Amino acid sequence: MTMTTQAIQEAIVDEFSMFDDWMQRYEYIIELGKSLPIIADQYKTDANIIKGCQSKVWVHAEEEGGKIWFTADSDAILTKGIIALLIRVFSGQEPKVILETDTTFVDEIGLKEHLSPTRANGLVSMIKQIKMYALAFESKNTN
């Protein structure tokens, strides 16, 4: 059974609560980035680059069995960890669920205020792109 996006976010908040300071949290985010499943080189295209990110971030989505599966990569280690967190929440979910999910964990762990303004904008852009993929798959399925 698929974990709900809410349950996944709660697990992330619990993990981050184990760290005392933001240096430890940054290190954890970087570690998460290292465990990100590698995106196939064929998807590292301009079409899959997230606009609005200071570093290069590629996100690819495929639908299988009514659920969307994401792969991603970034040329920046911290950004790679951030997209790994988002993929953990959204990958394997139905388009409708992705569209209805609020990324509450971002505020709960204090991520946004601990990022530079350009990285925070990039985070918003990543979430927006993931939701755009969900919208595209949802509208394709209802037509």
Rank of each mutant, 00 (worst) to 15 (best):
M23L: 14
Q24R: 06
R25K: 15
Y26W: 05
E27S: 14
Y28W: 13
Y28N: 04
G33S: 07
S35P: 04
S35W: 05
P37I: 13
P37L: 09
I38R: 08
I38H: 05
I39E: 00
D41T: 14
D41E: 14
Y43F: 15
Y43S: 08
T45N: 09
T45M: 05
D46A: 12
I49S: 07
I50H: 03
I50C: 10
K51G: 14
K51P: 01
G52E: 03
G52N: 13
Q54H: 05
Q54F: 12
S55E: 07
K56R: 14
V57A: 03
V57W: 07
W58Q: 00
V59M: 08
E62W: 01
E62V: 12
E63F: 12
E63P: 01
E64R: 11
E64L: 13
G66R: 14
K67Q: 11
K67G: 07
K67E: 11
I68Y: 12
W69M: 13
T71Q: 09
T71A: 08
A72F: 00
A72N: 01
A72P: 08
S74A: 14
A76D: 14
I77V: 14
I77P: 01
T79S: 13
T79A: 14
T79I: 15
K80W: 13
G81V: 07
I83D: 02
I83V: 15
I83R: 07
L86P: 11
I87K: 13
R88C: 13
R88Y: 10
V89R: 06
F90P: 03
S91R: 04
S91F: 09
S91P: 10
S91H: 02
G92K: 07
E94G: 03
E94T: 11
P95A: 12
K96L: 07
V97N: 08
I98A: 05
I98N: 01
L99G: 10
E100C: 01
T101N: 08
T101M: 05
T104P: 00
V106Y: 02
V106G: 05
D107I: 03
D107Q: 06
G110E: 03
G110Q: 12
K112Y: 09
E113R: 10
L115H: 04
L115C: 11
L115S: 15
L115D: 10
S116H: 01
P117W: 13
P117N: 08
T118Q: 13
A120P: 00
G122P: 03
L123S: 09
L123W: 08
V124S: 14
V124M: 07
S125Q: 11
S125F: 08
S125A: 15
S125I: 10
M126W: 07
I127W: 09
I127R: 06
I127N: 00
I127F: 02
K128P: 00
Q129K: 14
I130R: 01
I130A: 08
A136E: 13
A136D: 13
E138H: 13
S139N: 09
T142G: 00
